[in-house]
Design a binder for these strands. Sequence first.
DNA 1: TAACCGATTAGCT
DNA 2: GCTAATCGGTTAA
Length: 202
Amino acid sequence: MSTRLDIDWRNWKPIPGNVFDSSPQEVAPFIVGCMLLFDGIGGIIVETEAYDQTDPASHSYRGCTPGNRSMFGPPAHAYVYRSYGVHWCLNFVCGPEGYGSAVLIRAIEPIVGLEKMQQRRGLQDPRLLCSGPGRLTQALGISGQHDGLPLDQHPFVLLQPPVPQSIATGPRIGINKAVEKPWRYGLAGSKFLSRPFPRRPG
DNA sequence: TAACCGATTAGCT
DNA sequence: GCTAATCGGTTAA
């Protein structure tokens, strides 16, 4: 059983590398709705968060260290870090080189390679495969050895949809500082979010 | 000791 | 169907 069989992939195009020269607050909403494949397996990005060096919640806030050096490297590269000792989390480095900014990939809708993802995750439910930053790296087989890899070549593939997506925003998840920054972006109503977006007052 | 989390459990609609 | 609370676990400050 698969999803999104209605999509015509012929109209999807590679994401230009210079997209990642922009700020993480611009890149994060842009890549929501884009297709992410790693070694031929993946799906549609449905949730992201922006981080930059001025942000107390960012790994780059206190400058470059051995653990976060990829964040200060060239844009359009991966920053993969270990979270809570056990999980891996995938970020896309953006902004001018040395700026220390990145976009955290928080959730994808699994499309390609369902069986492999289910095997790696040890469960069947598509909604639990990639709905969380640690879950999606396990499903795609991404770990610390992939830190620093360029996003515009194998094993990465990034495609943008022919039509821009409608993006919801909200506060980021799992942080205690700069909680008020609405730097979480996603497809509101998607069943593959790590958590739903708060309903806007109105 | 705090951190960009996941799995499980308990309780709600 | 959903949300909140708890706890294990490694790293770096």
